[in-house]
Design a protein around this nucleic acid. Structure first.
Lengths: 350, 350
DNA sequence: CCCTACATAGCAAGCGCTTTCTATTGGGGA
DNA sequence: TCCCCAATAGAAAGCGCTTGCTATGTAGGG
């Protein structure tokens, strides 16, 4: 039936042990013998049985990357960066680690399921990207799972998520969402805007809350009253930005700026404004967050906060592989950079 | 040390066999016994050993999804669709299959490596998305690998890639890139354009070639000479579109339209035209391909060919799971739809 | 009241690999 | 020349789980 190590051994006239050692390359094997084994492997088209290998060696090559939405470049970029650091020379049996991306859809249940699956597979490492749900029960469940993963020997790295209370040994690369939000709104205030709409992300998410808090912080610091009717919540998608903008316009026709939870939402906002015949930024300024690749191609180009997604992901990947030292205390903050572009300007008549 | 099945069995006062059967739920176990086992599992925080389980059962829950670039929504959308069909009830040991996304970066070597890794893991299915390299050696190597995967019991589905010669049993959902390219250029020709620049994707890729052939087909059908100086190749990214457009403008300042290999490239083209002070579509029309989400937000909105990426991915996923019948002959063609929007118009002075 | 049949549970043989420990070499140094 | 050591190969004991087959008990049917 399927070719096993034993078949290769028989063909090469050596013991299974020797074949294993040739394949894993961590034990001296005479050149001639190795040669013979390799030839047999080739001739028989032998492929190692992963499960058997992992079972016997009690380790695995798997590295899991959890993302909220794989179709969103925000996560795609980070995942791609993590993966680029994971894959490559090093690792057992063939010299390749396998980075696998798991799409949770933002659901804590799915997140938990995938973490369990990775635990089952005795994953070498797990990188969890993106904001977390703030619900206490879920947070505890996920934190506990992360802790157990760590205890079982998997390296756990959070990328773009605050540290998990229940998993103290997980490394966390946190995005400074609050600071970014603060700077963005400061910029708008500096231009003279006073009536600013805010389209937040879904409630109960750390990312949403922190960005919003930064916004509110800026308003407070400038002594501008925070009208709660100017803040709307919705998913991180274009439609949410579109609908929310129309609603904001209805609630406060006098507003001069709209800040969106992220660039995708901001694009929706721009579309709504255009459809209403309003000019950006002359009538209304718009700002986003993340600086995804397409943001610079919006017309006018989007003012936003650039998050070094690729770099952060790459760093998370290196830490997960033990190739970079953990930050002190296991926590590092990644800062965003305000990118002022054409979509924000001085309010009309200012 | 780590908790094993035997520990659970001891605690629940049953045999390991019974525990296994409770966990897999495919053998009658008395309700009271099941209860007791489940309690023990909980109390001991037992987690199944995946490798051991896969080894003993000679199957695995893993489904691999290969993508060229995970940071590109083109692939992200397909991957997300595949995954949504894969995950869910059904499957062994816990009722969840694990869909993992592997990022090949478009490199045939990495593609091969991942396929081998999936073969090692005895993956239940493999979905390969996106165009293939046309190099004969690589194509044969990958085709052979796919064939062997199929022979080893993995279901193989290609999504957005032409059938592999060497893997006749792989199901292929092919995109009608040629037809789409044809319709797109037909549209431009219909508007009156005669000097049309074409920014193609990387050479040696099926997607690139087919889209380009469609373009040339349209030109030929309309009796328009195909000036080779008006076709440029480059990667599927924004920068390529930007640079190529500047080059096209240099080579043929009189051109009235630019067709890009995909939407991302088209966005780059738009940026270059804007930077040159040219108006879209009055001075130059621009068209893309794929209809990625951001295309509608370009200003003016991008004329493009919509590919039903999500639907195709979902279908591939269902076929991979054996939940949908294979298309006759194992091959189905997925057609694109021409989306005429603001970025194309009648050439100036026509 | 005995026998058959069904419903449960256990036994034990692997699944294919890794790795510890042991055996066999072939040389150099004494 | 002999002994000891380094270098290399093999034997065999698992790794933790699944599953075919067997054993036990119980409930009817005759």
């Amino acid at each position: 039936m399927t070719v096993t190590l034993a078949d290769v051994a028989a063909r090469a006239q050596v013991s299974p042990a020797t074949v294993s050692r040739v394949l894993n390359g961590n034990y001296p094997v005479a050149a001639a013998t190795r040669e013979r084994v390799l030839r047999a492997v080739d001739e028989l088209e032998y492929v190692l049985n992963g499960p058997a290998s992992s079972l016997a060696a009690a380790t695995s090559d798997l590295v899991g990357i959890l993302v909220n939405d794989i179709a969103d470049p925000f996560f795609g970029i980070m995942a791609s960066a993590v993966q680029s650091e994971i894959t490559g020379p090093g690792g057992r049996a063939g010299g390749e680690r396998m980075a696998v991306v798991c799409n949770t859809g933002g659901s804590p249940e799915r997140e938990l399921t995938y973490l369990t699956l990775l635990q089952r597979q005795r994953a070498a490492a797990v990188v969890v990207t993106g904001g977390a749900i703030e619900d206490a029960t879920h947070a505890a469940a996920i934190g506990g799972k992360l802790r157990r993963l760590g205890e079982a020997g998997s390296r756990v790295v959070l990328c773009g998520r605050p540290p998990a209370e229940d998993a103290p040994d997980a490394v966390a690369l946190t995005f400074d969402n609050r600071g970014g939000g603060r700077r963005l709104t400061d910029h708008l205030l500096g231009l003279g805007h006073r009536r600013i709409g805010y389209i937040a992300g879904p409630t109960e998410r750390t990312t949403t809350r922190h960005r919003l808090e930064g916004h509110q912080e800026a308003l407070a610091a400038a002594g501008v009253a925070d009208d709660p009717r100017l803040t709307l919540h919705g998913p991180y998608d274009r439609r949410s930005g579109y609908d929310a903008t129309l609603e904001l316009l209805r609630r406060a026709p006098e507003l001069t700026a709209v800040v969106a939870a992220n660039d995708t939402v901001a694009l929706g906002a721009c579309a709504a404004l255009r459809d209403r015949g309003l000019s950006i930024p002359d009538d209304v300024s718009v700002a986003g967050f993340d600086d995804l690749p397409f943001s610079i191609d919006a017309v006018p180009a989007l003012t936003t906060v650039r998050l070094p997604l690729y770099d952060a992901g790459a760093r998370a990947g290196r830490i997960a592989m033990g190739r970079e030292e953990e930050p002190p205390g296991g926590i590092a903050t990644v800062h965003g950079e305000l990118m002022v572009r054409g979509s924000t300007g001085v309010p009309r008549g200012y």
